[in-house]
């Protein structure tokens, strides 16, 4: 049970980190970025590929992976969102364009095989791979009947630190004030002399970099990297997390992430492994029906 609780915290950290980026974009733009789970996968895949196929050291590969995701954030903004914003298209149009980009990203990795067009990105096609043992130092401790692996334990401080930094930036810096202004009212922000487009690009870059990092942590801790990790693990769960915490609220997404981790582990212990997925979505459904503003919607009136 204790071990399960620990797993809930590991996986909850990853959910939280993923959902923070998701909710940041929703908070600023009122748009669901459905390419976010593809970016999550992209980060993990690029990092793996840099280590195994291009022989870079792990830390350098991580930086390359996160940078690639940040660039992907710019692609999302410039290809999928900005043209639609200029046309004043309904928000539903952005759902379709981001789905289109997600399709492209996943297909590019899926088709990455030796000799194919995308061999420089990925060579394992649709297979699931893991970092070879020894890539990352992974000492393991035994405390009582708990097993602590460094690769999993490290997730907790990394994600909490990043989320604190993001919270600080948004709350206390000039850039953060700009983001909040755009979230509150883009028109007024523009009239106050803010470069709204640049703020939105920045939002997408931060969001995608965090999503990519969450993917890398997932790939390292769960030894599972494939073109489908985004779709299978975080695509819909990310939605559940941001709804649990209240759409657009960053502290809400953090707490929602841990809460979902906990709910899933409880369901696993109480009801068995088959019920795990169903319980998470039933919780999501009930939450929306009973308290659509999320757990913290009432207190956290200000967005992001």
């Amino acid at each position: 049970m204790d071990q399960q609780l620990l797993n809930a915290i590991f996986i909850g950290s990853i959910y939280a980190l993923f959902a923070v980026g998701y909710t940041l974009v929703f908070g600023v733009l009122d748009i669901l970025n459905l390419a976010h789970s593809a970016v999550f996968m992209f980060g993990a895949a690029i990092t793996y590929s840099m280590v195994v196929n291009h022989g870079l050291p792990f830390w350098v590969a991580c930086i390359v992976g996160i940078a690639a995701c940040a660039v992907m954030g710019l692609v999302i903004e410039h290809v999928c969102l900005r043209p639609l914003r200029r046309r004043r298209a309904p928000p539903i149009a952005a759902l379709i364009s981001t789905v289109g980009l997600a399709l492209i990203i996943v297909a590019a990795i899926e088709q990455g095989q030796t000799g194919s067009l995308f061999a420089w990105l990925w060579v394992d096609g649709p297979n699931s791979v893991a970092f070879p043992a020894g890539t990352i130092p992974n000492p393991t401790w035994h405390v009582g009947d708990l097993t602590l692996e460094a690769s999993k334990v490290a997730i907790i401080p990394i994600s909490i630190a990043l989320m604190l930094v993001l919270g600080y930036v948004i709350r206390y810096t000039q850039v953060g004030r700009g983001l909040r202004a755009v979230a509150e009212n883009p028109r007024a922000a523009r009239l106050m002399g803010l470069d709204v487009d640049r703020m939105i690009s920045l939002t997408l870059v931060i969001s995608s970099a965090l999503g990519g990092l969450a993917g890398i942590l997932f790939g390292v801790a769960l030894s599972d990297i494939s073109p489908y990790i985004g779709r299978d693990n975080v695509e819909v769960r990310g939605l559940a997390v941001i709804v649990l915490g209240g759409m657009g609220s960053i502290p809400g997404a953090v707490i929602g992430g841990y809460l979902l981790g906990l709910i899933e582990v409880l369901a696993l212990v109480v009801l068995g492994s088959n019920a795990r997925g169903g319980v998470a979505f039933a919780a999501l459904f009930l939450m929306l029906v009973l308290r659509p503003q999320g757990l913290f919607g009432a207190q956290l009136r200000e967005r992001i």
């Binding site: 290809v79 999928c80 379709i96 364009s97 789905v99 289109g100 980009l101 997600a102 399709l103 492209i104 996943v106 297909a107 590019a108 899926e110 088709q111 067009l117």
Partner: peptide
Amino acid sequence: YINIVTGVFLI
């Protein structure tokens, strides 16, 4: 590469 074509088409 059909999914890439589909994605480009959707966008």
